[in-house]
Design a protein around this nucleic acid. Sequence first.
DNA 1: AGATGACATGTCAATCCTGACACGTCTTGG
DNA 2: CCAAGACGTGTCAGGATTGACATGTCATCT
Lengths: 179, 179
Amino acid sequence: MSLRHALLGLLAERPMSGYDLTKVFDSSLAYVWSAKHSQIYPELARLRDAGLIRQVAAGARGRKEYAITDAGLTEVRRWLQETSPDRTVRDESFLRVFFLWLMEPAKARDYLRGEEEYHRAKLGRYEEIASSPASEDPASRSARITLEAGIRHERTLADWAAWALRHLGGRGPRRGVPD
Amino acid sequence: MSLRHALLGLLAERPMSGYDLTKVFDSSLAYVWSAKHSQIYPELARLRDAGLIRQVAAGARGRKEYAITDAGLTEVRRWLQETSPDRTVRDESFLRVFFLWLMEPAKARDYLRGEEEYHRAKLGRYEEIASSPASEDPASRSARITLEAGIRHERTLADWAAWALRHLGGRGPRRGVPD
DNA sequence: AGATGACATGTCAATCCTGACACGTCTTGG
DNA sequence: CCAAGACGTGTCAGGATTGACATGTCATCT
């Protein structure tokens, strides 16, 4: 149940509304965890009922701002320090690579080219974020460390896609070309 | 609905039973996609009813071997060539890094050390697999390309964890140390 | 002969997650 | 003034996934 803890962790930084949280999942947290508002609002209600967060403000258009409680802070720290991460992987783009041999060679190359392009573009966006001025508060520093993982990840996969393309060869397998 | 296509893709290589498929998800496909037998058996029944696979043999202990049909092969190819991968990310270990600032500094360093160790160990296992003799059939070549992504991924994350540890510094943030 | 463990298939309740539906407000630009 | 778009919260049906339960077979070792 990581969504629960993701919400607690985000609210540990500052009070936010469900709408704010939805935008965080769509932007800075998109590389790490995703959730739609239809999942977030009910979960906020459950966290509120459990006393882990509480509503601290009401704004225009029915806006409800929530803050983490002491119990919530204790719970997110317990989760961080006493449980191990779930390592389950589900990556559809790799699944497709596993089945590359089922594709027509030209389509397979198209796919890998698309992968390189995708990761190269993402890398560019991440590098831009990393090069822009950032705060030095602890949360921002953690976000920067996470972003660094994203940058290295995207660079690695873009390079890998280029390697895979060379590995496949121009027209079926070819040998003698160094990696 | 990627499980459906994962099963079709695996059965495109050779006929297998639900038990065989479960083992594949637990071993060679674990880095790419995961599924339990409780999800696999019902999905095989649905694929059979849809005519995308058919039972080709019955073995001891109620074993049922399935093979892909022409319709199934058409469907998996259609999926590969006409649809785009779902890029949704949910990585709990990164989520925890995002919240590193909530941990006691010593615990945060423990976590990153654990991450480096985990990825380094996984890298070792993948490299061992990569160095052992492999077949040259198309499916094995695709698997090798996928494995290469895994190797580079694990190496990148192990190195990143080491970098993050240095970035945090021995006792709170420290500057002037090159990356 | 009996125990152990791999082999083998299945169901089911509960939870997670998505996409669609539903409703209403505030601000800004034409 | 009004349209568009952002702001804002919520529900619900259906599919995906898990973990527990359930059942039985076959080979191997002691």
